[in-house]
Design a protein around this nucleic acid. Sequence first.
DNA 1: AGCGGAACGC
DNA 2: GCGTTCCGCT
Length: 510
Amino acid sequence: MDCNCVSDLLLTPPVPALWTPGFAFPDWAYKPESSPGSRQIQLWHFILELLQKEEYQGVIAWQGDYGEFVIKDPDEVARLWGIRKCKPHMNYDKLSRALRYYYNKRILHKTKGKRFTYKFNFSKVVLVNYPLFDMASSPFLLAQNHFNGGSAAPDCSPVTPEALQSLFPRLPEASRGGSLFERSGGAPGPEGDKLRLDAFPFLGSGAPCYSKPPSLLGPYPRNPPFDYPWGFNPYLPGAFSLNNCPKLPPGSLYPSHFYPNPLQTSLSQLPHPFSSLLPPGDTEAAAAAAAAERGGAQSGGTNGSAAGGQPPRLCIPPYPGSQALGRTELGSGGAAAQAERERGEATGPGSGGILGLGQGLGLGLGLGLGGVSLGGVGGRQSPSERRTSGGGGGGGVKQDPESDSDLEITDLSDCSSDNETDFGLTKSPRLDIRTQGLDLKAGGVASALPPLSSLPPPASPHPLKSLVPLTPPPPSLPPTLPPSLPSSLSPSITLVDRHRETETLKLAHS
DNA sequence: AGCGGAACGC
DNA sequence: GCGTTCCGCT
């Protein structure tokens, strides 16, 4: 039954999403499709969407620790969610129940002591979307933060430039505190990035654990201890997309850009040194696509500070301690929002762990998909048992849609379940533009790339499980790389191997 | 406010 | 699998 009640979220050409204050993720995080196996918009995606949009800053906003957000207007958020899901009777109580389910899944957790405040588990999020990323991190897995609220992690990331180097063997030589990634001479790339290691705060460099997000570089100090509770590094642009190419429904909201060849996209989305791993032609094409995409995404938007050469599609979250210096430069935060943030800041790092890449991502690996398997933890009684409470399940209570009138439906895209995947996306001019940008690439190397199915398996659901059946690397893997793909893309594969090696070692040691 | 079990729908 | 709805409990 259609209810035509999709909200405008997703449909209104959003704010210049990328660089509006307080937005943290590469765009993939905002895409409903970025949740494999799930057709419909998921709540956490929806939350991200809201967080992404400036106009909802008064309703929900980043605040406090990294990844932490506060629902300023629970009823409104619930209402919006209800609109999106065509659940006119949605309320915060129900919504929060849904959020609570994320606890077990390690997608979210509650920030205790702060009302309506939750926190994203980015490592989980990234795992779902970038399994390989997790693998890559595995070699540096030293920590065992068990999602304990992130307490006892040491301060800085143990990941050294050398480690990074081993992650990306083809990167320029690492040097501590040096200009690891700074472009040494040469014409600035399309992105004009001047990215250094400090653009990867999570990686650390032996130096302070705090840094600035790439290209937002202004004064954006972080307070050590650095807090990446679960270790996701949202500063890394969608770099490791792999195995996450949902079947792209024709006419999908999101252009194939988001699910194209993972390797290529990954690299092309990385800041300069990474993107330069692509062959020149591809790099340019990718850059062009990215640029087109950026243009599309921000068309009409006030891009302002973001203009100059930041890695594409990377949004910067607020960070405690950053406000004083950083917020203002970041754009139109809004005084109220800022005040809120500063308030949240007071609690600071206390609630979270301090993780670096190795730890955090290690954790991600450990918890990662395992969280999924744990997801059902709650365990249900056998259906026969209960049923006593008169309240009855959802279906029973369904009320008639009278209250639909309460909804302010700003968009008429239908939200029948059949169509929810594409959400009337084709209607969005912005998306069209993107798509065009994409086509650029689609016609190129990307289209020649192997099906994702031939790519390595995703990160192991459980650290132990991954040890046991070390499935041999898909023999098809290297061959499946089209000849057009330069060997420079091999790091990813190398990472897989490295991952396996590491896991093997771990097994041996245990 | 927040939690989690349970039944249920899709 | 992912909520939705309801509920009792803290």
